[in-house]
Amino acid sequence: SEEEEEEWRRAKERGEEIIILGILWKPNDEEAERRIKEALRRV
Score class of each variant (00 low, 15 high):
W25V: 03
R9T: 11
I36N: 00
V43M: 14
G22N: 01
W25T: 01
I36Y: 02
E38P: 02
R42L: 13
P27G: 01
I19T: 11
L40I: 12
A32V: 05
N28E: 11
E30F: 12
I20E: 01
R10S: 10
I36H: 01
L24A: 06
I19F: 10
K12E: 05
A32M: 02
R35H: 10
K26T: 13
L21P: 00
R41I: 11
E16S: 10
R35Y: 03
G15Q: 08
G15A: 05
E38R: 01
E17C: 12
E31M: 06
D29A: 04
E3P: 14
E4K: 08
I18F: 11
K26L: 08
E6M: 05
I19R: 08
E30D: 13
I20C: 09
S1M: 15
E30V: 11
L40C: 05
E13A: 11
R14L: 11
I18T: 10
K26N: 09
W8P: 08
L40Q: 04
R42K: 14
K26W: 06
G15F: 04
R34T: 09
E2G: 14
E2W: 14
S1E: 12
E17R: 06
E30L: 13
N28W: 10
W25L: 03
D29T: 01
K37W: 05
W8R: 07
L40P: 02
R9H: 13
E33D: 11
I20R: 01
I23K: 02
R42T: 13
G22E: 06
A32P: 00
I23Q: 02
I18K: 07
I36S: 00
V43G: 09
L24H: 08
K26I: 12
P27F: 03
K26G: 07
R41A: 14
E6L: 06
W25A: 03
E3D: 15
W8F: 15
N28T: 04
E31K: 05
I23P: 04
L21V: 04
E5A: 03
I20Q: 02
I20D: 00
G22W: 03
R35V: 07
E7T: 06
E2I: 14
I23E: 05
G15S: 06
L21T: 04
E6S: 02
L24R: 10
E6V: 02
G22M: 11
E16P: 02
G15V: 05
G15E: 06
V43R: 15
L21N: 05
A39F: 03
I18Q: 04
L40G: 01
E5G: 02
E3G: 14
